[in-house]
Amino acid sequence: MRVVVQEAPFDFGAECDRFAAGRRDMGAVVTFTGVVRGDGDLATMEIEHYPGMTEKALTAIAEEAQARWSLGDVLVIHRHGPMRPGERIMMVATTAPHRRDAFEAAEYLMDYLKSRAPFWKKERAKDGDKWVAATEADEQALTRW
């Protein structure tokens, strides 16, 4: 399991390659990456986080995924700081002997790190800055697990 919190961009292709390499017993690799969507006149997305707690929260979520599904490995990378539309914010990846475990665990990771990992997004646009509000749908997504 690997959990990385960093300001710098990450190389999605290289991370996927490295993560998927070297296992003969894993039939499935699932990856997801989140991208800053350039809605309206969004100039930058700024992500604040809680150093120390962020790493602990992500590790706990990844450990829970490993406990619930039959997985080979889990990777979580999440950036903080300012990002422009089109930049990759974060990625998760899972390996499993079978695809259902890999898909479900990746969705679980996404649902939980969206509302239980201490990150806050601020949108900076020409007409002002705005904190992104958590949605009821995000909270609701946790109830299915």
Binding site: G34, M90, K114, S115, R116, P118, F119, W120, V132, D138
Partner: peptide
């Protein structure tokens, strides 16, 4: 102790 709004990661 830390206070903050609901989190918006991902």
């Amino acid at each position: 102790v830390a206070f903050f709004p609901p989190m918006t990661g991902g």
